[in-house]
Design a protein around this nucleic acid. Structure first.
Lengths: 303, 303
DNA sequence: GTCACTATTGTGGTCTGACCACAGTAGCAC
DNA sequence: GTGCTACTGTGGTCAGACCACAATAGTGAC
């Protein structure tokens, strides 16, 4: 009853199962120790691995060999204490990390749904990571915007060229929600972000989706403050609505070049208008625009 | 003596200081609660914020308003206990999260260098996040490679077009290190990864650098296993050396188109060769290659 | 037998207190 | 001055005790 870890087969990777997954690095260092060593810039001699690292290593090894998969339950905290010979507080520190990283989800109480369950929710962890690193100026906002430019342009091009044409229902829904004139700036921005995120989701790339969620979340407060600087938020909102329609229209029309150009300009212009700064380069020549398609500046893309 | 939190002015953002940084969301929910709520998909009614979230919120607010900046020391754990009215274990859970995320660095002992210090080391956290999410199949390896394709292509184009020409000393150093014929596969891959990372660093984008470090780390073990599948690792290594030289040469020659094409093919081919799978699309047409420059396939780029 | 209530059990969440190893620093003996 | 020693404050860890909570087993009334 205490052994939640089943005997499930290792999950197959997209291109087929790996015959033998390496259990540890060739160096003999566990991954978490490596991370710590890199961060500390020292060898930490004589000191054994931290107790919480032991727990983290153990759980990671279970994940890597497929013993634990999404939906499975972790052994209880007290069971881990007994298995690994560490204190419960150390176990809880490790579980807390996995929690914030979006890998587990804990529930109190009894029954089959209680305890820590493996999930795969990278967005929360990515958002926390990026938001905090923006807060300590490790991630300059300009770099965040530059990265958005690169990823979103690639996503737009990908969507426009994808076969079969991707489903964009969710993006459209947020587009229409933004049409409500009674929307406050914060609410508008929420749908705005959701629209961009929906495009990433439509591309089907989990990594880009999570990354974009993190990028957006990290500058959420900046964007909100930025609206108060604009001379005329209403006018800006109108322009954004038009640009969004244009981007969507280009994707639907399977015009990769226009899609890339439009979304690049969309982000770049908004950044410039909001912060009055020189727009970050992103990439010097936005992709697919070697022969720049004249983008429809007006409402030609409506409906 | 116990108050490590100074009265430093808020750090200026690149485009100038923000006049008034919002202290909390308009919704009244703290960021961490929002993350939790999203992950849980529930409101968690009646239950107050978790104790460790309180600590995390507090520290994040200190970071956001600039009261804490890199190099500063956090209040001691026992001081936080007294300030926030939570137990020390809860404080430690929060600090552990910040530790793994690469935001603080803790040292035992006494003196001015002891305690938890604010740092900005996103790489470790990004690596941990991505590595674990690959382990639970939340991040398919194909998506990792696709994202690498997009980011590295953009980086290469950026570097080739940057003025003044960026310094590529570190990348060159790893290039030369890879020439050692006595290198084992694992060591070669280490320099290989370092080379690609050095390019990202040269672009000056902190976000991309950290992201690429995470992407690489997340599939490190896969790459290592992959080498054992290759029919002739030595031949592959030779080809990789040539391709690396070609990429560097294109950047040095300020040929944005070739730089983008070459690095795109480089990554795509290696993925295909190693895993024998259909190479991920990345972006349908690699940027800047609308008029494809015939890349030098041989060693024309040596030196 | 069926139903409603209650006690039990097992989960995470938290706090408290106690040690330990460690690294500076102050104090003292010389 | 110099060198040793004790002290102090730091994070790291463990053990134990509660609590709230949710499912379940058990118990009783009907």
């Amino acid at each position: 009853m205490t052994n939640h870890v089943g005997t499930a087969e290792p999950h197959a990777w997209q291109t087929g199962p790996l015959p033998a997954y390496p259990q540890a690095d060739q160096t003999g260092l566990h991954a978490w120790q490596t991370v710590q060593a890199l961060q500390n810039g020292e060898n930490n001699p004589g000191a054994g691995p931290r107790a919480w690292q032991t727990v983290l290593d153990y759980i990671e090894s279970l994940l890597q060999r497929g013993t634990l998969a999404p939906g499975d339950r972790l052994p209880g905290e007290r069971a881990l204490v007994a298995q690994l010979g560490v204190g419960r507080s150390s176990v809880r520190e490790a579980l807390r990390v996995l929690d914030v990283l979006g890998l587990i989800h804990t529930r109190s109480g009894s029954g089959p749904s209680s305890g820590a369950t493996i999930v795969a929710a990278p967005r929360g962890g990515m958002s926390a990571l990026m938001r905090l690193h923006v807060a300590v100026n490790g991630f300059p906002v300009a770099d965040i915007v530059r990265t958005r430019l690169i990823l979103e342009t690639a996503v737009a091009i990908d969507l426009a060229g994808a076969t079969p044409a991707p489903t964009l229902d969710r993006a459209v829904a947020h587009l229409e929600a933004m049409d409500d004139p009674a929307l406050r700036a914060a609410e508008f921005l929420e749908h705005d972000a959701a629209f961009h995120l929906a495009l990433a989701e439509a591309s089907g790339n989990q990594v880009i989706t999570a990354t974009m969620a993190g990028l957006r979340s990290s500058i959420e407060n900046y964007a909100l403050v930025g609206t108060t600087r604009l001379p005329d938020w209403s006018a800006t909102a109108s322009r954004l609505r038009v640009e969004h329609r244009g981007i969507l229209a280009a994707i639907t029309a399977r015009d990769t070049s226009a899609a890339g150009s439009l979304i690049h300009q969309h982000i770049s212009n908004y950044y410039k208008e909001t912060f009055g700064a020189t727009p970050p380069s992103g990439s010097p020549a936005h992709p697919g625009a070697t022969t720049p398609t004249t983008p429809p500046p007006g409402d030609t893309a409506h409906g």
